[in-house]
Design a protein around this nucleic acid. Structure first.
Lengths: 253, 253
DNA sequence: CGTGGGATTGAGACGGGTCAAGACTAGTGG
DNA sequence: CCACTAGTCTTGACCCGTCTCAATCCCACG
């Protein structure tokens, strides 16, 4: 279709628009699914905020850019994670988000979230908890950026990924890094060279094995020791997802 | 008020004793005012979350502590700022907050906020925007911690303080740092020695004058240059406060 | 089979940390 | 009111972790 084609060429600036071929409305559902291919932006700073995104499959990275071009990756998202929340305050997205791999994403009109929040105490609670958790995550990451050494940050990063994959029912020890070394570096406040060296060193020390983007964690106790904490301490309560696997706004159970 | 009394008995650490003289219920108001003296904690990690705090006067610092004792100051709060929001997710505070100076703080039972949010679209919106803004702030600070040099972080910190004081109707160029060098260092991911050296150097360069905790900013253009940005860029839309100066939950205007 | 983006590895520089000594300041009690 | 003290701040010298710059390697993709 002509419109979609046109829009596609425009994606850089205007990724979110109506009437796209890849927007699949779910019957009787509160939100639609949209597919993004690797590298495609979901939203970018300043764009009018109208929807939240919930990852169904694939992965994303979010980042902010300073006026003079400094980039800080603020997080990586996988299935179940929500992005777009920071757009609420000013009705404009405050982060850039792009797909790291081909991904399917629930597109949640924020108006419906607000309505849901008004109708259901559970929805209200879930939405606010999701927002609050973002803050918590950010504070924990500030702790890493502000006080920890490169090796410790890296260990925490890897173990965090591992835990998240495990919670999704995937292997906690073997997975693929969807992002570039540079992305990891930006997230951890390091250069890509330092990231590379750290991975090499950890491999030399037998803590893990790395081959390009494929990682397998070999020595969890050692990694936790590097991270300076233990699994129990960081184990989060599972947060009920905003939408279920079919795209329904969650209901109280 | 009954709620306030109940809360007090539950407060884990020192600051609380029941039926305190410093809890002043405001007649016909939705929240009470409580006074905290310098160094007194408002809340600490793990404590049951039941209230938000809104600074009426004075100032606070919030920080998180890692398992092995690393401390990261996550923010400094002055009049109008809200703390306690990160407690929403797990019904337990996730940060420690202490008063930097003798302060008066509105104590907002969260149940009332939820009710307010359900009753009033304005309240709902304001609450969520407040939460989202926390995330935004954190992301901006992550950018500083992850990508910027010490001097740049310090300049940004000073200018941010300056802007906030200005917005409160105080001098934007002369103010008192309520926190220790160590607190500034922790906030900026630096050591207290580096903070001290930076202030000395900026004074030597004529950008500011510092005498203990008293600061006067002398050369704003230079400071903005160090900060690598400009005033307009960082000027936030004024966020309507959750409560007004009398402690009423805000109403739509 | 080329080609180019990404990753690795090395050598050197430097920002900020660490350690240590001294100065200042605000409380505190005499 | 002053002297004492403990906490805070400043400053210096040195060191180390990470960045920078650069060469090379690897691999996915055309």
């Amino acid at each position: 279709m002509a419109i979609a084609g046109l829009l596609d060429r425009n994606q850089r600036t205007a990724p979110a628009s109506s009437a796209r071929a890849d927007i699949v409305p779910l019957p009787h559902r509160t939100c639609s699914v949209r597919r993004f291919e690797r590298g495609e932006p979901l939203c970018s700073v300043g764009e009018p905020f109208r929807t939240l995104f919930v990852v169904r499959s694939g992965s994303l990275k979010s980042y902010v850019v300073s006026r003079n071009g400094l980039v800080q990756v603020t997080g990586f998202q996988v299935a179940g994670d929500v992005v777009g929340l920071d757009g609420i305050d000013r009705s404009a997205y405050q982060s850039d988000v792009v797909a790291l791999a081909d991904s399917a994403v629930f597109v949640l009109p924020f108006i419906q979230c607000e309505q849901w929040s008004r109708d259901s105490a559970y929805g209200q609670n879930l939405l606010m908890r999701t927002l609050a958790r973002e803050t918590y995550r950010s504070h924990q990451h500030m702790l890493a950026l502000g006080t920890m050494r490169a090796e410790q940050r890296m260990a925490i990063f890897l173990l965090d990924l591992s835990q998240r994959y495990e919670r999704l029912g995937l292997s906690r020890s073997e997975f693929v890094l969807g992002m570039l070394r540079q992305d990891i570096g930006s997230y951890l406040g390091l250069t890509l060279e330092t990231v590379s060296r750290l991975l090499s060193r950890m491999q030399r020390d037998g803590f893990l094995q790395v081959q390009g983007k494929s990682i397998s964690l070999l020595d969890f106790p050692a990694l936790w020791r590097l991270a300076g904490t233990t699994p129990e301490y960081d184990r989060h309560l599972p947060l009920d997802p905003i939408v279920d696997r079919e795209g329904n706004l969650a209901a109280a159970h």
